[in-house]
Amino acid sequence: MSNITDIRLKRDAGFIAEVEAASGQKLSTCYQCGNCTAGCPAGFAYDKQVNRIMRGAQLGLKDDVLNSRAIWMCLSCFTCSLRCPNNIDVAAIMETLRHMARKKNMVSVRKVEKFWFSFLNTVRAFGRSWEIGTMALYMLRSLRVFTDIDLAPEALKKQKLPFKPYVVPNGGAGAVGRIFKRYRERADREGVRP
C-alpha cells in the first residue's frame, strides 16, 4: 500500500489488539528510534524495514503489514528484541504477523513457506528431518531445480547427506505423524489455514 492519505480509514483497531494479544507486546511503546532496523541482519532483503513494520502495526495498517515481504525474510535472530530501548520483543511481533498472514493466506514470499513445508513434510513422514528429501521436495514445489546444485559434489563427496531417511523406530514416526494430523484437523475445525 502506498497512498495512506487517511490514517483513520485504514486503521484496524481489532488488528492492533490481535497483534498485542498474540505477541504479548504493547505497540504504543515503540518510539520509532530505528534500532531494530539498524541491527537487523536481514534488512537488505526486506521491502519495508522493521521499524516501518512496527509503525504500520502501531497504526493498525493491517494489509500493509501482513502483505509485506519483510515478515517472511525475518531470521528470528532476536537482535531487535535484545537491543530495543523500550524492551519490545520485536521478533515476537514479526513472528506473530507471520502467523497471522499465513492463517489468512497472505503469503507474499511463497518460496520461504514452501521450504518450510518441504522440511516439515520429511519430519511428518519419518519423525526426523531429511536433508535430501527436503531439497527434493523444495525443488519440486518451487520449480527451482538447480537450487544449491553447486554444493552437491562436495556434499556428496564428504558424505554429508544420507541418501536414505532415518525413520524413528518403535512407532515413533507414527506418533509424530499424528501430531501433524491433529494439527491439520484442528486448523480445519478452527477455520484457519494450517
Binding site: S76, E95, R98, H99, R102, E113, F115, W116, F117, F119, L120, V123, G127, R128, S129, V168, P169, N170, G171, G172, A173, A175, V176, Y183, P194
Partner: peptide
C-alpha cells in the same frame, strides 16, 4: 525414539 524438534520451519508456521 527422539524426533525432530521442528527447527525454524515449525515455529515459523505455528508455535
Amino acid at each position: 525414539e527422539w524426533n525432530c524438534c521442528g527447527s525454524t520451519p515449525a515455529h515459523a508456521v505455528d508455535t
